[in-house]
């Protein structure tokens, strides 16, 4: 019968104890060597799977990070991905256009994305989708930065943001941190396998399913009912009340400022757009902050959150626009962008 995990009745003699310690150290070393070898091998296999994937989220991120070469690039969260009809925008603007929005991501990811894009390509315009709610601190947005980890070794551009995962909640002013200024993420990143954490299933799927990257626009097709609209608004209100320590995340604010500065340094046009939402934000501190930032940094902010043209549930699938809404919104947006760009050209 195997030894129980919970009990051990053996009592070694004092002399035997030393021999057991030596045996333990030897076997620990063998185990450690095996873990390192297996970790490296797993990392290699996952690296191959990741960078040769033909579909899925990882493939899309890899495409946007390393291959995108369009004139206009939309960056942001699911609001970007669902609300911006990029083929229509491309037609209307007479420029190629790619929607690099990623579901569930935030400005932290957008900052890493901007750095990665600008490292291989200079677009003419970057549109930053600004969902005001995103600027508040949210633990999940740091968790989701795990998608950056496969790039950590080879692409120094993502390291700053990836490292934020490890210090998000650390009290850097505490005496303990001053004594041991550790970043837990850097320790985890010693493992090659960890860099592909939670990806193996998607990567295996990616081998078998091929996907053509077209515009990055993934519209929603259902239409919201009045009852659902109320539920979304209520849920939002409850969430706001429930978050006791709701505060504007300084790292997200820093990300936004850096995105704008990066675009300016590279002499690209950049504008912030707030696409239509179910509920207006006009008194929210974060909304006021974004407005003042736009003025301070002289970046155009196109705000559609209170635009009555979109005050109709037929344009919404949930808190995002549906295909009808996205098409309508993009047609409105394109005329604004044309004006914005032509004004800039004139100014130049």
């Amino acid at each position: 019968m195997p030894a129980s995990l919970y009990t051990s009745n053996s009592k070694p003699a004092k002399g035997g104890s030393r021999l057991q310690l030596i045996k333990f150290l030897k076997r620990s070393l063998i185990l450690l060597a095996m873990i390192v070898a297996l970790d490296q091998a797993t990392g290699l296999v996952m690296h191959q799977l990741y960078f040769n994937a033909k579909s899925g989220k990882e493939y899309e991120i890899n495409y946007a990070f390393t291959k995108v070469a369009d004139d206009i690039i939309i960056i942001g969260s699911s609001k970007a991905r669902r609300n911006y009809n990029t083929p229509l925008l491309a037609d209307s603007m007479k420029m190629s256009c790619y929607n690099a929005g990623q579901d569930g991501q935030s400005l932290l990811f957008s900052y890493a994305m901007t750095q990665m894009i600008l490292s291989h390509h200079k677009p003419k315009l970057i549109v930053v989708e600004m969902f005001p709610e995103e600027l508040y601190y949210n633990e999940v947005h740091y968790d989701r930065l795990n998608v950056l980890l496969p790039y950590y070794a080879d692409y120094p551009q993502v390291r700053e943001v990836a490292n934020w995962r490890g210090i998000r909640n650390t009290d850097t002013a505490s005496a303990f941190y001053k004594l041991f200024p550790y970043n837990i993420e850097k320790i985890k990143l010693l493992s090659q396998a960890y860099r592909y954490n939670s990806m193996w299933f998607d990567l295996l799927k990616g081998i078998f399913i091929k996907q053509q990257i077209e515009s990055g626009f993934f519209p929603l097709h259902n239409t919201l009912t009045e009852k659902e609209k109320q539920q979304y608004i209520n849920k939002f209100e409850v969430m706001k009340r429930g978050e006791r320590n709701r505060f504007i995340d300084p790292l997200k604010l820093k990300s936004l400022i850096r995105i704008i500065n990066l675009c300016k340094e590279n002499k690209l046009d950049v504008c912030m757009v707030m696409s239509p939402v179910l509920k207006r934000y006009n008194q929210d501190p974060v909304y006021i902050l974004v407005n003042s930032l736009s003025k301070e940094m002289a970046v155009p902010l196109l705000d559609f959150t209170g635009d009555n043209r979109f005050n109709d549930i037929k344009y919404f699938a949930d808190n995002h626009l549906n295909l009808t809404g996205a098409t309508y919104f993009t047609s409105v947006l394109s005329s604004y962008l044309k004006n914005e760009l032509s004004n800039k050209m004139k100014a130049k």
Binding site: L31, I35, M46, E139, V140, R168, S191, A193, Y194, S198
Partner: peptide, 19 residues
């Protein structure tokens, strides 16, 4: 050794390491 190191690698690949 293979068994236990595989468990550790599986934890690294599939575990949830958020907060």
């Amino acid at each position: 050794f293979v068994f236990y190191s595989s468990i550790i690698i599986y934890i690294l690949l599939t575990g949830v390491f958020d907060a």
